[in-house]
Design a binder for these strands. Structure first.
Length: 574
RNA sequence: GCGCCCGUAGCUCAGUGGAUAGAGCGUCAGGUUGCGGACCUGAAGGCCGUGAGUUCGAGUCUCGCCGGGCGCGCCA
């Protein structure tokens, strides 16, 4: 086979190898069809799409597809025969294209196509990592979107507690993954500066400041006392003149609390692009206009002095009140205005990250969006399952009003940001979690996150050792013969290292991050095995050392970028 | 009662309809004259809640049942 022309690595398209292989299979399928090796599909049957997966057993090659099995019915032919026909077309294709990523094609019963990647393709991928490390793991989305992700959105009536942690991490991780997959993401925090709870907070602060008892449904907790102590004289004076004394104090207090929340989130590495206040939706007329839009299209009616949305027209159990008989809009009314406001900013996809206890309100939001003419699928709600926080076997209450909750800041001082990010990032958002604080503290030293970070630190140490020994890394692996032995430690590590873009692609498509933590753990394991079997720094063989240095540097970059995607640090030493 | 989510190893959890169901922790037995032992090798441990169905193929899809969680306001 001729030496393939290697384009400058920085100009290589960031197409995962898996995607190249999928496209090759599609072409082979078409060729087999056109060449008469495959019959016409039986009428009325649906043709499958080509899916390529990593086989669990390395003996089955690097990539595999069950396409032939799925074609058996439409083609009314044994799957093995179909597999052979596509395999033949693939081999012919690869023979005619020296740069083909496919080195070998095998057919396995009952009809799998098992493929092995070429050394040249793997080496090129490694060179691409070394040439442009910062962008490694970023992929081009099929259809890039302007995505608005709204999360946390806790009312600024008290500091964030550990119950808010999951939503904060899940939201931030999702944003990072979507960005890596080529989408344009805006992180948004929606907060209530408008309703009764703000006044309630103000009344509580005022009561404490004036030495009166806190109202029965008021807020307690140390932070309320601190606010009372810090309440400036001018706000107090203003309250004294106001008809509703709690209101100005509440506004002042909630802004203080909001700023505190922003600072807490910053310590988690979570930053928002937009802080949107509910009051601004009214001030700018969004709610009124959205309601008018629903009215004009016949989706509203009046009853008992209230204004109702015909949610049942869209399959809801009951209609929903938009404006109460006292003239105030409901929370749902604000939501309707907010949807239009978000779309007006040019987003084509909205993601809301809500606690599972809000699931009952999902349908009405999507129904209203649909009624206003927005695609239902572009108003997506991810429900985060409940985290049951336990200390010494006893559930911890998270009530702000009772004031006996654990704050986010306290949690992080106990287990650390990296461990917390890993904990939430490695679990699906829809399963309930029991979180035992004491257990988490004890296990934080055994946390897999340190295993991955250790692998990174170990490579960094090797690179330092190599520099001390005056060994340089190879500037190019393509054509180096590094992978000549397919069962060598080098080949195993290389195959694992080049997978990152596929993992990112899958994570973004699934809107989950577990695949990334799982991959990072796997890559760390593969590296540790490599470390055991292959000495990198060896002055007696500078050439081999140079190639291995390039390989472990590619693995290091991959580990660092995988951790970076999760917002987790990749230390040079631990 | 209705709706949504969940049920996988002792524990905490992964598992885009594909080949022998995985990881970490825990338990047990081992490993270092050399680049970091926060490491490595091996073992034990599973009727994937349960019963049917769809499929060439089901932990994954459909339906029923059992168990757990959360909702079912002119609250936010």
């Amino acid at each position: 086979m001729a030496e393939p022309d290697t384009p400058a690595p920085e100009t290589l398209p960031d197409v995962p190898l898996r995607t190249e292989v999928r496209l090759a299979i599609e072409r082979a399928w078409e060729a087999a069809q056109a060449g008469g090796a495959l019959p016409a599909a039986a009428p009325g049957t649906e043709l499958p799409v080509v899916e390529v997966e990593r086989p669990g057993d390395p003996a089955h090659g690097d990539l595999a597809t069950s396409l032939a099995l799925k074609l058996a019915r439409p083609y009314r032919q044994p799957p093995l025969r179909i597999a052979e026909a596509i395999a033949a077309a693939l081999r012919e294709q690869a023979a005619g294209a020296p740069a083909s990523p496919i080195a070998a094609v095998d057919v396995a019963a009952p009809g799998f196509l098992n493929l092995r990647l070429s050394d040249a393709a793997l080496e090129q991928a490694l060179d691409r990592i070394l040439a442009a490390p910062a962008s490694w793991g970023r992929v081009r989305a099929g259809t890039p979107r302007q995505v608005n992700v709204e999360f946390v959105s806790a009312n600024p009536t008290g500091p964030l507690h550990i119950g808010n942690a999951r939503g904060a991490f899940v939201g931030d991780l999702l944003c990072r993954v979507l960005e890596a997959a080529g989408h344009d993401v805006t992180r948004e925090y929606y907060f209530n500066d408008f309703g009764a709870q703000v006044r309630n907070l103000g009344a509580s602060v005022l009561a404490i400041r004036q030495g009166e008892p806190v109202p029965g449904d008021g807020y307690r907790g140390d932070y309320v006392r601190e606010l009372a102590d810090q309440l400036p004289a001018e706000v107090l004076e203003e309250a004294g003149r106001a008809e509703d004394r709690a209101w100005p104090v509440g506004l002042w207090a909630s802004e203080r609390v909001r700023a505190g929340i922003e600072a807490s989130l910053a310590r988690l590495g979570v930053r928002f692009d937009v802080w949107k206040s509910e009051g601004s939706l009214y001030a700018e007329g969004w709610v009124e206009r959205a309601v008018e839009r629903l009215r004009a299209s016949g989706h509203l009616y009046s009853q008992d002095g209230a204004l109702w949305f015909r949610s049942t027209d869209f399959g809801d159990d009951k209609d929903r009140v938009v404006r109460k008989s006292n003239g105030d809009f409901t929370y749902f009314g604000s939501d309707i205005g907010y949807v239009t406001e978000k779309f007006s900013r040019g987003f084509d996809h909205l993601i809301y990250i809500w606690g599972a206890d809000h699931h009952g309100t999902v349908a009405r939001l999507q129904n209203a969006a649909e009624a206003m003419g927005y695609p239902r699928a572009d108003v997506e709600v991810l429900l985060i399952a409940w985290v049951r926080f336990v200390r010494d076997g006893r559930e911890i209450s998270m009530s702000k009003r009772a004031g006996e909750f654990i704050t986010l800041d306290e949690l992080l001082s106990e287990i650390g940001v990296d461990a917390a990010r890993w904990f939430f990032g490695s679990r699906g958002h829809s399963s309930g979690i029991d979180f035992d604080i004491e257990l988490a503290k004890r296990q934080s030293n055994e946390n897999p996150v340190y295993y991955v970070q250790y692998a990174h630190a170990r490579i960094a140490s090797i690179l330092r050792k190599a520099a001390d020994a005056g060994l340089a890394r190879a500037d190019r692996l393509a054509g180096s013969g590094l992978l000549a032995d397919a069962s060598s430690p080098e080949a195993v590590l290389a195959r694992e290292t080049v997978r990152l873009p596929e993992v990112v692609e899958d994570a973004a498509a699934a809107e989950e991050t577990q695949s990334i933590t799982a991959y990072a753990t796997q890559l760390a394991t593969t590296f540790h095995a490599f470390y055991r079997d292959a000495r990198v720094v060896d002055p007696a063989d500078a050439g081999r050392s140079a190639r291995r240095l390039a390989l472990v540097e590619a693995a290091r970059i991959t580990l660092a970028n995988a951790l970076g995607l999760l917002g987790i640090s990749a230390p040079e030493s631990m």
